[in-house]
Structure formats: C-alpha cells, structure tokens
Simulated assay, not measured.
Amino acid sequence: MRETSALVPATPLGFVPSDAARRASDIIVMHFLADPVGNRNRVCAIRLSDGGSDGVVYDNLAQAVRYQLHYKQCMYVRISAGGMTPREADVYLAYHRRCYEIGNLPNYLEGVPLYVPTNLEDHHR
C-alpha cells in the first residue's frame, strides 16, 4: 500500500492537508452536525499541536479562551453551517501558529478579556 506524501498530490492542485487540519475540520463539522441549530455561531477551541479539541462547544469566544489551560496553544473557531474544509483548517492553523510564534495575538482575540489563572483553584472556576 502506497502512503500519501507531499509528492503524491491528493487533488489536482497538489494540496495534501495535514493530519491536524483533517482532525480540526472533522471536529468542527461534527459539532455542527450534532446540533445544527444549537451549535451555530458557538465557539470551539482547537489545539494547534494536533488539531484536537477538548470536546466542548462554548457559548462565546471569551468562555472558550478562559477555559483553556494555555490560550495561546489553541485557535478558536466559530461553528457555521459550512463547517471548515481541511484546506481552510490548514491555513487557519498556520496563521495562528505564526501569530503566536512572533508574539502577536490573532486580530479577533484583541479586546477579549484574557483570563490567566494564577493557581489551580482559579483554573477550575
């Protein structure tokens, strides 16, 4: 069985999404399909390291940021009817990784109250 690599294009344009992008795309689509009306416009936190999630759909961006152990290790995606393709997820992951790498915040996080717990008890509130 031949493995897919960057040399074996998955599409006519030669794009092969990363595993993290595929996983992130699947999670976002799954949350939408689980409750198309209730989850629309809610927020999901996706880990930058592997595209995984904590499995929680948050009511708003501030809650999603607050309940992450390290908010800079995640990207925050608003769940929409179209979901997110693996290509979009790859671009979104790359954008967030680069923002955090150079010490910036993504534009949509500017102005969001970033809650940084100082001890374990504060983290679990």
Rank of each mutant, 00 (worst) to 15 (best):
M1W: 13
I102L: 11
D90E: 15
M75R: 04
Y67W: 15
G103I: 00
I28L: 15
N107C: 12
P9M: 12
S53M: 06
H96R: 10
A94G: 03
T118D: 13
P106M: 12
P113K: 11
T85Q: 04
A21D: 07
D59R: 12
N39M: 01
C44A: 05
R78L: 05
L120W: 15
V57Q: 00
L33I: 09
P36D: 12
Y58V: 08
T85G: 03
I79V: 12
D35I: 05
L13Y: 02
T118Q: 14
P106K: 06
A64M: 03
H124S: 09
Y108M: 08
V116A: 13
A24N: 08
Y58Q: 06
H70R: 14
Y100K: 10
E121T: 14
N119D: 09
L7S: 14
S5N: 15
P113E: 14
Y100I: 10
Y76H: 08
R2H: 13
D50W: 09
R78I: 05
S49F: 10
D54P: 03
H96Y: 15
L120I: 12
L93C: 11
P117D: 04
Y108G: 03
A64S: 08
V77G: 04
M30P: 06
R87Y: 09
R87A: 02
L13R: 01
A6I: 09
R98F: 13
Y92G: 02
L114A: 05
A81C: 06
E3Q: 12
D19M: 10
R22T: 01
P117S: 05
L13W: 04
M84F: 04
N107L: 12
E3F: 14
N39W: 00
I28H: 08
Q73T: 11
V29D: 00
C74N: 05
H124N: 09
C99M: 04
D59A: 13
A89R: 02
D50F: 07
L61Y: 05
L13P: 01
G52Q: 00
A24M: 09
T11S: 05
T85V: 06
I79W: 03
T4P: 01
N39A: 01
P86I: 01
H96F: 15
L48S: 00
R40V: 14
R47A: 13
R2G: 12
R125N: 13
L120T: 13
A21R: 04
S5V: 15
A20T: 04
A10P: 07
V77T: 06
C74I: 07
H70L: 15
L33R: 11
L93M: 14
A21T: 08
V16G: 04
A24V: 09
I102P: 10
C99A: 03
I79S: 02
R87S: 02
R97K: 10
M84Q: 00
M84C: 02
A45Y: 00
E3L: 13
P12A: 06
Q73V: 11
S18F: 08
Y108N: 05
N104G: 02
S49R: 11
